[in-house]
Design a protein around this nucleic acid. Structure first.
Lengths: 139, 139
DNA sequence: CTTGACCTTCCAATCATTGGAAGCCTTATC
DNA sequence: GATAAGGCTTCCAATGATTGGAAGGTCAAG
């Protein structure tokens, strides 16, 4: 299989496969006499694993670890679970951050007339640093 | 005020102030005879506006627009609101994406024993592409 | 033998921010 | 006046993951 075939079979862009190789996420592929990279179906399995892990938002660094655990028959599921839960914690932190942004902005936009007049609570918030306008009692 | 003073007053790193100037987000600062950048309190206000907007997750591109509207007395609040709501839509899309990742992983981790044995539903999901393991009926 | 589709490497851009290096300016102290 | 500290300047580079393009080699079919 050439890199293009492996790309189709795995769903990972050929360009990205080369990148993954360059950073050491996947091992260096074999080469034909002409210098073309050669892939086996087990290489494609690794690429599919990586793709699924990326879909779940794992960083390349964590995927390195996961691939290592995957191929280690003496792994403990506790190790895998810890990597996954570390990632979940990061996802939840990011979600909370975005949630706070969205809620603040939604609140401000709701208070904005949205007409032809220039007066706007959104700009007032940005101007004042979001300190204390319109907020309920602090808890 | 020097750039360091403006940084302290606005909360925006001096390095970042230079960057914002280089990309045209803020106008070029005046200079002393020796070439030092000079800032006024109104410059600091702009920096604070930018900082607050970044805190709310606005892209630099959108902040350009917001600063323009802020300084445009003939703006309509509808324009501001639209920019804000566009951003809210992006935030919500991102949140939904991360939510799906987190939920999937939480589910998988829950099904993982997390002990010394190698068997692990998380790795099985990554291996199989998350196709049909453990899912309820598709809707 | 030419065309087109593939492959190769290298460099660059994305987005916002941070870091360092090398060198100049200002201020304070000796 | 020398010197040291600390702030300022510019330029270059790195982050993370991915994508884009350019320039050139290779393979298969016609």
């Amino acid at each position: 299989m050439t890199i293009g075939d492996a790309a189709k079979a795995s769903g990972v862009n050929a360009k990205l496969i080369r990148y993954y190789e360059s950073i050491g996420l996947i091992p260096e592929a074999g080469r034909t006499a002409a210098g073309y990279r050669v892939y086996s179906s087990s290489d494609v399995n690794v690429l599919r694993f990586v793709k699924r892990a990326r879909t779940l938002g794992f960083s390349i660094e964590r995927i390195q670890i996961l691939v290592g655990l995957w191929q280690d028959r003496s792994r403990s599921s506790a190790e895998v679970k810890r990597v996954a839960l570390d990632h979940v914690a990061e996802l939840e932190a990011k979600i909370a951050e975005l949630r706070a942004m969205s809620d603040t902005l939604t609140h401000l936009a709701h208070a904005c007339h949205g007409d032809e007049r220039p007066d706007c609570p959104i700009l007032r918030d940005l101007e004042e640093g979001g300190g204390s306008c319109c907020d309920g009692p602090p808890r």
